[in-house]
Design a binder for these strands. Sequence first.
DNA 1: ACGAGGTCCTGCGAGC
DNA 2: TGCTCGCAGGACCTCG
Length: 274
Amino acid sequence: MPELPEVETIVRDLRPFLVGRRIGRVTLSHDDVLRGVTRRRLVRRLTGSTILAVTRRAKHAVLEMEKARLIVQPGMTGSLMVHRRALTPDEAKYAVLRAELGRGQELVYRDVRRLGTLLLLDAKAWTRYTRAIGPEPLDDDFTVEQFVSGLGRSRQAIKKVIMDQRHLAGVGNIYANEALFSAGIDPSKPALLLTPEDHIKLHAEIRRILNAAIASNGTTFRDYRRGTGDTGSFQLELQVYGREGEPCRVCGTRLSGTHAIDGRTTVFCHRCQH
DNA sequence: ACGAGGTCCTGCGAGC
DNA sequence: TGCTCGCAGGACCTCG
């Protein structure tokens, strides 16, 4: 679920509540969200640590502490928020990680499907981890040239390539669909067949849409909630995602849908996109 | 090297 | 009403 704009929203919402706070009691309901760390080690490392910074890399929220970083990858249904009162039974039911912050506040990672993951990385492991992820599309120095070199000469569908986190950070299924529509590019077009004009348009549209989605606090299609617990509102601005069979907002053509690209829901206008 | 497909999980809505 | 089936915003793995 959460793609770059959703995680960016979460991180911005949580930052004022988390920076400088010391973590008290920590509980974990399921071990299956952990990667490369045991429950025992995670709990021991978090307990008593002070959160120094809350940042985002790709689709991950990063809590930086003195000796380690907690990486939260929300997957499809993960959410992260600070509760300022006792959790309701429903909130508690899917709370995977709970970390007390004092003053009756609690940081909660909630994940219904538990496809999300938690990692605990030291400085060296973090460097290795972040180096394997592609460039941040919203960085000031993310140029068209950098974008094109990241695409490689792949014959794979452009949609799959821009969703590949090794090539580009943070773009998931919703924003890949939207950016390709706005750029007028067929999602199944092999990356190596994109024209220089395609590159310029797609680079610009990815950035424009991600920024617009952040301004709307993300897309709540179903589960996504901001760090405040509220929904985002970019779903009101989606042009193609979730609109299969409905008329294209530009030309009125019935929007097509397929699962042929990497098995993911793809919606596009066969008249506007080539 | 690449594409296809399965896997991890649970909930929900459609259809019977 | 109640059941089963397919599908869901992600990422990783194996197989051919």
